[in-house]
Nucleic acid binder design. Sequence first.
DNA 1: CGAAAAGTATACAGATCTGTGTAGTTAGTC
DNA 2: GACTAACTACACAGATCTGTATACTTTTCG
Lengths: 196, 196
Amino acid sequence: MSEKRQRLIDTAIRLFAQHGFHNTGIDWIAEEAKVSKKTMYHHFRSKEELILAALRHHDGLFRNHFMKSVNSLGNTPYERLLAMFDVAHDWFSDQAFYGCMFINAVGEYANPNTPIRDVCRDFKKLMRGFMASLVTEAGISPVEQTTAALAILLEGSIVSAQVSNDPQSARTAKAAAKVLIDNALKNTHKNHPVVA
Amino acid sequence: MSEKRQRLIDTAIRLFAQHGFHNTGIDWIAEEAKVSKKTMYHHFRSKEELILAALRHHDGLFRNHFMKSVNSLGNTPYERLLAMFDVAHDWFSDQAFYGCMFINAVGEYANPNTPIRDVCRDFKKLMRGFMASLVTEAGISPVEQTTAALAILLEGSIVSAQVSNDPQSARTAKAAAKVLIDNALKNTHKNHPVVA
DNA sequence: CGAAAAGTATACAGATCTGTGTAGTTAGTC
DNA sequence: GACTAACTACACAGATCTGTATACTTTTCG
């Protein structure tokens, strides 16, 4: 794997996040990455290919960071579900927080057939998979419904923090998540008591 | 008020929603609106002016439609709070649903100082004001916290529907909202009993 | 060593973008 | 009817965009 290729991807992620996709030109990325334009087109056939590579790389980095942080912040599945929102709060507080790159990408590429949308849907699906496993381990049911609600809370807090420029939404979402989880747990135990 | 000016705004809203802001050119808007480019620049000093006018007009239309629908679908503040998510479901099911225009705009214009961001923040604030009044009328406390949670649920469901191309998130958000509201009501009455 | 791979700088083609200039036409109003 | 404001078509300036071509240099590695 070429070092320049990686530098192009890293630079692309940064500039796309900071200035949007259509608003970030190829020349700019190449210049910031200190790589000639020709080399860029050697590694990526087109701008779309670069966007896809950047999104996929960011997907891996982000999910890895997110899961690691969540797992280290919480010791039980229950704690980890709530810790998601603490990790989100840290993220929102970062100087370089520009919202979720995948949500922003979907906003710019409305055509549902573009492969860019596929990558965004995949990211979302993988994040949900992680949440679903925590929900399952925590013994909460119904798994699907609870996971979907938590995912909505997380995404809502991201957008809220982005638009209002205020990380506080993570705290609000966390409190709401706790209510939902506790309520689901109560009903779970009522119907299928774990403790006799 | 000129009819052509209005046609430019209507066309701009449609094209911006469908294809994004940077990706929609002035020439295209003028052509679709059947208005000469010169006339367009007579009514709007720049593309940004047109974007601002389009966002502000959409703001008015959207909020009016939203509030009217919510108020007619529900007869009590409690019902209306939940009806928000039914209105959202209808919206998500529309052929021409491309997510929230303001969220998309914030994604494309990351610079927090641009007036475009101001319009988006204002929209969000006004929507929250509407929700806060319903929460207050419904006798739920704390008003701020509950309103913020419901707003996050609504925004999360919008983004979820947009990315996954599935209006179902409105139903999930509605169920979650009901749990949150009922829980808040229970605690409200516990601390400040309305019924003796 | 020597050949292939990867890199550089730079110019350019062709398209598209925002915004303006020119010159003439339509439509409403005193 | 004459004046004015709004409008039209169209060309153009100047910038910027994606992607390619040319010609040369560096790096890698069997």
